[in-house]
Design a protein around this nucleic acid. Structure first.
Lengths: 255, 255
DNA sequence: CAACAGTGTTCGGCATTGTCGACCGGGGTT
DNA sequence: AACCCCGGTCGACAATGCCGAACACTGTTG
C-alpha cells in the first residue's frame, strides 16, 4: 500500500490531539506535541478552521474541535450497519430486562459505544454514544477482546488501569476470563469498572460469522446478579437472544 | 487570510459528501462529484482510511464514514461551552414543562442540535443530537435566524422546502416572523414542521450579548398551546427563564 | 464465450503545492 | 521598558502530492 498523503495524516493527528486533550489548545502546544514547525501547523489548522472542523476561541486564540465534526460523527451512525440493525433489538432487551442496554464495537483497542438505550425507569442518565470504554473492565469490552486476539494481546501487553479492587489487570487472569467467555458464548463483569455495578454481554456476528460488535446490559449488582453473586440466568438468556437476533439480521447465517 | 491547504480541503469535501449522501459511495462517484481525477481521490481516501475517518466495505469496495469520526464528534460535545453550560438547565425545563427539550446552534445555515432531553413520560424517542434541522420550520431555527441576518438572508434567498401547509416559505412571511421574534424575545412554531406538533424557543446569548444558540421545547399542539391556538404563556415563561439562565452562565452580563 | 463497461488500485514524471524558518505585531509578566 | 510567549504572516525552495494512463478484477452484455 503506497504512502499516505502527508498533510491529511497530519491534520488527522491534530484532530485526534484536540479530541484527546479535552479543552482548548494553542497552536504552539500543537506544533510542539507533533514536532511540526509552527508555520506548518498553522497552515493546516487554518484550513481545518475554514472547513469547520476546528473552531477558534476569539479571546484566547486557542483552538478546539468544531461543530461540523459532530454532524459528521452522527452521520456515521446512520450508515453503520451494526447500529441500524441492532436498534430494533436493543429496545426490547431494555424493556424485558429493565436495565440500560449498550452496543459497542472495537476501535483502536477500546470499546466505542454506538448505541445506548436508557434504563426504562430512569431518564436522568447521560448518553454515552460515541464515548470510549476501557476494554478490560467492561462486559462489552471483554467479549470483544475474547474474539479479537490482536486487541487482546495489545491489552495484556502492559498492565491496564485498575478501576476497582475487582478489575482484572493481570495478564493471566484476563486471558483466562477471555477463554471462559469463548467457551460460554457470553461474558460478564461484576464491579470491575464501578463498585456495585455489573454488566452482561454477548458477541454480535456479522457476515461470515466474524464478531463485529457486542450487545450488553448493565445495572446494579443486586438486580443483575442472584444470591450467589452470579449473573441472573434469565438476563443472560435475554442478552444472548438479542445478540443472536442482531447477528441474524446482519447476515451471520452460519450460527 | 492566505490560501487553504488543498488536500485537506478536498479531504473535508469528501467527508462532507459521504455524510450528505447517506450510504456507501464508490470512488468513481466521489471523484466525479468533486471533479477530481480518480487517482487523486483514491490517494486522499486511502489516507482517510488509514486514519480511520472512512471505512471500506470489503465486499462492494465502496466507502463510508468511519468510527473514529463518531468519537471525534462526541469529543466536541465535551468541549462545547454552550452544551456543557446548558445541560444543567435543560433537565429542569423538561421536568417543569413535561416536554422534550433541545438546544441548537447555527451551522452552515442549518440548526445543529447539541443537546436533547427526552420528554419525561416517554422513553421511546430517537435522540437527535448531531442532526441538522431546517432553520425555517423549527422554533429553534427561527429564533437563531432572527438574530443572524446573514443566515436569514441565505434562507430567504431561495424559497425553502415546505414541510406542511403551515410552513413559512415566502420571504415576506418569514422576515416578518423573524422581526416579531426579535420584538418578543422568543419564537414559536405551530405545525410548520410536522402537523400537530409545536415548538417554543428563546435565544441564548454568550459573552457580549451575541446570540450563540437557542433552547426550546416541542410537543403536541394540544399540550403546548392553549385554546386559541397560541403557545401557553406558562411554557413561554419557562423557556425564556431557561434561556436567560444559560446566558448568564455563559457570561452574558448585559441582559 | 469474448468483448465490454464498470469497478478499485497502482505507478512514475512533472510542477504545483505545501512545507519550513525567519520575521511581524501584540499581551502579559517580570 | 525589557523580556518572553503568544498567534499570525511571508516568501523561497524542493519535497510533495497531483495527475492521467495503465492495471487487475468482476459482472454483464452481445
Amino acid at each position: 500500500m503506497p504512502g499516505q498523503v502527508q498533510s491529511i495524516a497530519r491534520a488527522a493527528a491534530i484532530l485526534r490531539l484536540l479530541a484527546s486533550s479535552s479543552g482548548r489548545l494553542g497552536i504552539g502546544e500543537i506544533a510542539r506535541s507533533l514536532n511540526l514547525p509552527k508555520g506548518t501547523a498553522h497552515g493546516i489548522i487554518r484550513t481545518l478552521q475554514d472547513v469547520g472542523f476546528v473552531e477558534q476561541d476569539k479571546t484566547s486564540g486557542k483552538y478546539q474541535l468544531g461543530a461540523t465534526l459532530l454532524h459528521l460523527g452522527t452521520s456515521y451512525l446512520d450508515v453503520n450497519e451494526l447500529r441500524s440493525r441492532s436498534i430494533n433489538w436493543a429496545d426490547p432487551l431494555a424493556a424485558r430486562s429493565g436495565e440500560a442496554v449498550r452496543i459497542g464495537t472495537l476501535l483502536d483497542g477500546k470499546v466505542l459505544v454506538v448505541h445506548h438505550v436508557f434504563r426504562p425507569d430512569d431518564i436522568l442518565q447521560t448518553l454515552d454514544v460515541g464515548s470510549l470504554l476501557p476494554p478490560h473492565a467492561t462486559a462489552l469490552g471483554k467479549v470483544l477482546l475474547a474474539y479479537d486476539v490482536g486487541a487482546a494481546n495489545a491489552v495484556t501487553q502492559r498492565e491496564p488501569e485498575p478501576y476497582t479492587r475487582r478489575t482484572l489487570v493481570k495478564a493471566r487472569a484476563l486471558t483466562r476470563a477471555l477463554s471462559e467467555i469463548r467457551d460460554n458464548g457470553w461474558g460478564a463483569e461484576i464491579g470491575e469498572m464501578t463498585p456495585g455495578e455489573a454488566g452482561i454481554a454477548a458477541p454480535i456476528r456479522g457476515y461470515g460469522g466474524l464478531v463485529v460488535g457486542a450487545i450488553g446490559l448493565s445495572g446494579p449488582v443486586d438486580r443483575t446478579c442472584d444470591g450467589s453473586g452470579n449473573p441472573r440466568p434469565a438476563l443472560v438468556t435475554y442478552v444472548r437472544d438479542a445478540a443472536r437476533a442482531v447477528s441474524r439480521d446482519l447476515g451471520a447465517t452460519r450460527w
